[in-house]
Design a protein around this nucleic acid. Sequence first.
DNA 1: AATGAATGAGGGTTCATTCAT
DNA 2: GATGAATGAACCCTCATTCAT
Lengths: 182, 182, 182, 182
Amino acid sequence: MRADAARNRARVLRVAREQLAAGDDSLQLNTIARLAGVGVGTVYRHFPNRHALLEALSAERFQQLVDEARAAAAAEDALAGLHRMLRFSLARALDDPGFAAVLESSGDSEARTSVMKAELDGAVTELLDRARRSGAIRGDIEADDLRRLICGIQHAVRSGDGTSRYAELYLDVLIEGLRPAR
Amino acid sequence: MRADAARNRARVLRVAREQLAAGDDSLQLNTIARLAGVGVGTVYRHFPNRHALLEALSAERFQQLVDEARAAAAAEDALAGLHRMLRFSLARALDDPGFAAVLESSGDSEARTSVMKAELDGAVTELLDRARRSGAIRGDIEADDLRRLICGIQHAVRSGDGTSRYAELYLDVLIEGLRPAR
Amino acid sequence: MRADAARNRARVLRVAREQLAAGDDSLQLNTIARLAGVGVGTVYRHFPNRHALLEALSAERFQQLVDEARAAAAAEDALAGLHRMLRFSLARALDDPGFAAVLESSGDSEARTSVMKAELDGAVTELLDRARRSGAIRGDIEADDLRRLICGIQHAVRSGDGTSRYAELYLDVLIEGLRPAR
Amino acid sequence: MRADAARNRARVLRVAREQLAAGDDSLQLNTIARLAGVGVGTVYRHFPNRHALLEALSAERFQQLVDEARAAAAAEDALAGLHRMLRFSLARALDDPGFAAVLESSGDSEARTSVMKAELDGAVTELLDRARRSGAIRGDIEADDLRRLICGIQHAVRSGDGTSRYAELYLDVLIEGLRPAR
DNA sequence: AATGAATGAGGGTTCATTCAT
DNA sequence: GATGAATGAACCCTCATTCAT
């Protein structure tokens, strides 16, 4: 990729991220192009449609999650690692509703997304298995369930006032609910 | 209300319900008018905006929930009543995503909705209080939290394949998470 | 006319006048009906269309103008009477742009309007003739020209800030312009 | 500006001018787009609203007026220049009611219009000042008053049959009215 | 590779007028 | 006579996407 092309791509991604963070989830490509100081055509060259842009935006966050999951999997205490992982995921999903949408979706339009999702689920499955072996986690919940549940929690938090008070509380409900039945 | 007005209103509501059930949540007033065989103006007369229509659609389901909550509150066992109530709420929210949207929203545009929400929360609060006194429910969760959490669970179930297998599982996670910390 | 019909007609006229006075010249029959506390159908029964309402509104003012013109024609000093008449006409036209529209229009849709216009022009013609005989007014201006010129002045005043400063000034320009050429 | 953009802009302006000339002052952007053979979006890109289009239409005529006013100001006889200027303005306003609307309006939406208006008023003020010094014009009338009065006269002429007989006559009334009081 | 003007389907909403009640 | 619900043409404007420059 030419240097200017790469720079433009990065600009577009940055602006798109800022827009989402500012609460505008319409992600209008014309607007993004203007704010990024490039033509619309350039945006379309890099991202054939809105969804491709969303997925590209998610890729970076996905990588963070994978890294976090692997770090957690490498830690001594699997349960603590899992909790850390869940808290981290929720925070990222709250940061970026677009990312949450990709995280919970089952049909990805870019192969890369599916790959990262598989990697994430793989790392989380390891964590879950270890935590389960020590009796800390119920047996009927899998990595993809956790992805969906975290997004559900994100949804609930967002429909309140979105403050961390709700995030902590609802996350705690989830965490308690993951224990084996008494 | 005049007979023809009532008939048109009912038609519009029926069509809107069908649209939502068919997975189209755009709820376009022109489209609905056409399908209902009435003029657009008629739709606008009855429902000044999309949200008003959504709320009207929800009113009936809301009443069901209020009835259920009161029945549960009247029952002997508060915890069992609460669980029944949660299961019922989740089922209704899964039936109708529009209803879920109104259920979790904090800003209602029709006073009637707020009234019903308050009635619902009142009945659930009674249930919660009784269940709490018997030590079965954690102390930091209120009726509005439950509304949001159920909608979050609905969201998670829907992002899976929406089958009752997920509904049962995720609901159980929520229910377990509502117990007092061990 | 039945008493209630007359009462409704009067109400509609009153509300329409208030609307115009408030600067809303859209004269929406639905709005007027609502404000008057009658059904739209009732408004339509009395006034088949917007224009009919406008003309009805003008009738009363027209009568005032005719009265004023006759009073002026009866006075000793024709020129002073004419000036008084012009000032009065301008004030009424500024009060009510709808009236100004009827006043300047050449095609009336109600016979009654044409009759009053003829009466007005008749009285003004008398004034003009007398003033002309004493050499105070140029010979090439007729009553209908005066109607149009007053409405033109009203237009000019309105496009300024509409204050009486402009009204006085522009009226004075007109009055001076009506003298015989030097 | 790109060649095609300029071509489209010109087409839109031409069609709009034709519409106005044909007596349709509604200036509907969809209609204009269709007649101009361009998409609605193109019209909106060039002219965000009706008024912007009107002002653009007026720009050319405005320039003519400014030129005329300057030519008149350069002439020997200020009064003759002023009269020529008034006659010219009235003719342009009668040609194009849209232009008249912009000419008399006090709130411009495009800076360019305000600039041209200021230029026009500046040139006319010079004329007025010179004519006043020779005692030919009353002292209480300014350039903006003249703009409004000309538009008022245009209004009056138009409400007659619009022929030049009225134009000449009413303009003469105005011109006579601008002399100092006897 | 970049640009941004153009497109036009598509959705929104209003309101003069009719007509069933 | 009165009512006001219903009508639907008509207008508004946006924005995802294409393609000439």
